[in-house]
Amino acid sequence: MRDASEHRDRWQDDVAAYALDALPPREAEIFEAHLEGCEACREQLRWLTVAVDQIPQDVEQLPAPPQLRDRLLSVVDSEAEVPRETTAPEPAPETRVRRLPSFLGGFSMRPALAGLAAALVLVAGVVGYQLHDSGGDPGDGTRTVSAQAAKGVDSSGALEVEGDHGSLRVSGMPPTHGGDVYQAWIQDRDGGVHPSSVFVVADDGSGVVSIPSGLDGAAAVMVTREPRGGSETPSEPPLMTARLD
């Protein structure tokens, strides 16, 4: 007990300062040396880093200047192994609506259904759960979990899980507001919620989103509507939840 107490007294505040990049260089070196041999501090650092990552999410969001995009893409095209084949249309200046390439034609994001988000209440629970083997790889089973929509949302979803990754197929999703996107979230068994993929849906509310990692040991996958680019923490109660436990 005494050792644990001494350890806590000595290092616990340094973890937070380190996570904030607020340790002077020499102290940071000492802490990093300690970190190498201390799982407790590594775990605490991982835990607090999630909080640090939240800080920039609170910054007032501004549209990036169009010329920044133009300059970057000009440099990137000149250095790319695979340059862009077609010149993208100029983004409308000062717009907050996400510019969608023409190839996504049908996937417009028209403002609609205002006021829906705030009224949503999560209803957790798995509607259906089944196991089946994937045809091409009989030894490596996938399972499909049905997602439950929140009250007032007439959507459905099916999460196909294979090991640590999977894909979520949704239908009947409400249209997003201008510039908004849908985002998948992974909830771990400790209750922590981690951001996953951002996606858009077609006019008919259908879409598929890949969940590239994080499903091994996850408790649930959820979907929320988020501002353009996605968020670090959910901005609203989930529209849809697929429970894995």
């Binding site: 999630v50 909080a51 209440v121 979230w185 909830q187 209750g191 919620v193 649930a220 109660p237 939840t241």
Partner: peptide, 14 residues
């Protein structure tokens, strides 16, 4: 950090 864990509301807490 604790608030983040609670961010999606008690209904979603496992």
């Amino acid at each position: 950090r604790v608030q983040l864990a609670e961010a999606i509301g008690p209904e979603a807490a496992l």
